[in-house]
Nucleic acid binder design. Structure first.
Lengths: 338, 338
DNA sequence: TTGTAGGCGTTATCAA
DNA sequence: TTGATAACGCCTACAA
């Protein structure tokens, strides 16, 4: 079951491997007849270039890397299945491959993982998401000269291609929507501190309150971790307040869905007693009960475009634009009905 | 920003690259003092072996492949985020990497993908899931001599390592539970035909009916595709029957959650008017409203064990056992309450 | 238009 | 215990 190499093809054709290589790669300086013979025999013999040998010679791997921010051992988040699908699609479209691993954000394991990939020249470029305000990955990768693109931004003074959502404005809009429906005591269950996501969405929350002339009550802002459980626990804390919130915003859909469960357990009705809204616009939100009001972002497309962007950069294409800021779409459903 | 190579380290140490290589790889025939010096200098210089060169020489890549069965463009399924996290964890633990891509099952794109990976010797082994009764991947990979492991089995006469759930017995148990609560008109929303999953779970459904002495009414068994949408549409069909089902089983949690939405839209209450149950035991099920009765399988652990199994096979370890059949755990929640 | 030869960075074989 | 040398499979100056 030895794989057939370019040597075998050359031998069979009584040609040099050089000619075979060039014929297959479509170089112009090959006789049409020769090229034809080569194509035929190569296909017949089932020859496919050895990816590794090619990588070594070309000094690039055509592999993109992506690290899942696996919080705990378990990591159940539909967002990332969609994100990975998008990355895979984008990579494949350009003949690239996608390497995936998992690491808890800001741990030694994460640093080791990126370092291994970079130092051993395993990947040509990296896609980042769940950006942090002071993201060591950005500093590290730009220092190492490894191209990367990101879903989101940082506070660091480093320029790189990104696609970001204007989630600050988005959340503010959501608050406005809630206020418009008469909710005035609005809670917020956030994301881990230090993440750009949290900075933006939390700021949007305050913007929204301010615009509506509502006070910012720190009791109403609690911590979350972007999981169901975090949302559930955050909501429980909010429900222990002497004066209950009338609406709760989750930093993402999972958080919001977790919060809904806490509310239901308390015997209250989501959308009537307490409004709930999320962020992401996953299928989970559409199928929650009641269906969840949310800010929708195009997860799959964003991931695909990120892969495109990174590959464009890797293949030396001139990018006319490499900063993209998109607006999330407010989708109003029964969870903020009234 | 040229990476430091083994040559640089050898030059600096005034040793041959051979010795450096062997010292770093922990071969015994190296003087302790030399090894120490080498380790020190290599670390100081930040030397990391070039993965690609090593791959070429060793004639293996230490990369595992996994293809997401992306049904549509979008692919929102928490099951797979957890599955990939498990694979990544297992791979990393043994110094392996994980290559991920997406393809629609049983399409040319899928065949091309596997072929590319295999022929170009990009991956050493492959993890399969969502097995089909007559799975071309099994035939192909075993013919090519590429090691693989699978989450589930096939009807083909090929022996390979797998971890499977006894979902047939599981579903039968679930039917028994439903019957015990007085539900007698039980519908089933299935998976795509040709999948082992569908064969097993559908058989379990019939087993359960038979054991309870209930008739098998073909109207009550409808098709699904393991997505929210499929569950939603399947349930709508069931709700159009002249005589409504009193319970609905979804082939997975997503299907069940989609079905719940259809039931709610119809103004009926899940768990009171119609019972619903799923399969997988994802977080989504725990946080559905009402919480979803389901058969739980250890997704993360199974994936991790599959990676372990495949790597054991790749590294030539003697496996004392390579067929595992696990029992899913019935988790009873309010969606089948009464 | 085709062939020769060198090298990508490692590891393995064999000799010293 | 160490070193010289030859691959691994491919690509690409350069020569023919």
């Amino acid at each position: 079951m030895m794989a057939v190499t370019i040597r075998d093809v050359a031998r069979r054709l009584k040609l040099s491997i050089t000619t075979v290589s060039r014929a297959l790669d479509g170089y112009p300086d090959v006789a049409a007849a020769t090229r034809h013979r080569v194509d035929l025999v190569a296909k017949e013999m089932g020859y496919v270039p050895n990816h590794v040998a090619r990588q070594l010679r070309r000094r690039r791997t055509d592999i993109l890397g992506f690290v899942l921010p696996a919080t705990a051992g378990h990591f159940s988040d539909a967002f990332f299945s969609e994100f990975i699908a998008g990355l895979g699609e984008g990579a494949t479209a350009h003949g690239f491959e996608l390497l995936v691993s998992t690491a808890q954000p800001d741990t030694d394991a994460e640093r080791q993982l990126y370092t291994r990939w970079v130092q051993s020249r395993l990947v040509d470029g990296v896609v980042l998401n769940r950006m942090r305000l002071h993201d060591w990955r950005v500093a590290y990768l730009s220092h190492e000269g490894i191209p990367f693109v990101a879903h989101g931004r940082t506070r660091l003074n480093v320029d790189f291609p990104f696609i970001d959502m204007d989630s600050r404005t988005g959340i503010a809009l959501l608050v406005e929507h809630l206020v418009g429906r008469g909710y005035r005591r609005i809670g917020y269950i956030g994301a881990p501190p230090g993440t750009t996501l949290q900075a933006d969405r939390s700021a949007g929350y305050r913007d929204g309150l301010r615009a509506a002339g509502l006070p910012f009550d720190t009791c109403l802002r609690v911590r979350g971790d972007l999981t169901h459980r975090g949302g559930y626990e955050g909501a429980r804390r909010l429900l222990e307040l002497p004066e209950l919130p009338t609406a709760i915003i989750g930093a993402n859909d999972l958080t919001a869905i977790g919060a809904m469960r806490a509310i239901h357990e308390r015997g209250l009705a989501v959308g009537r007693d307490i409004a709930v809204a999320g962020y992401d616009g996953t299928e989970d939100a559409a199928h929650a009960q009641p269906p969840l009001t949310t800010l929708k972002q195009p997860i799959f497309d964003t991931a695909k475009r990120l892969a495109d962007l990174l590959i464009a950069r890797l293949t030396g294409q001139r990018l006319e634009q490499w900063h993209f800021i998109m607006k999330p779409e407010l989708i109003i459903r029964a969870s903020t009905g009234r």
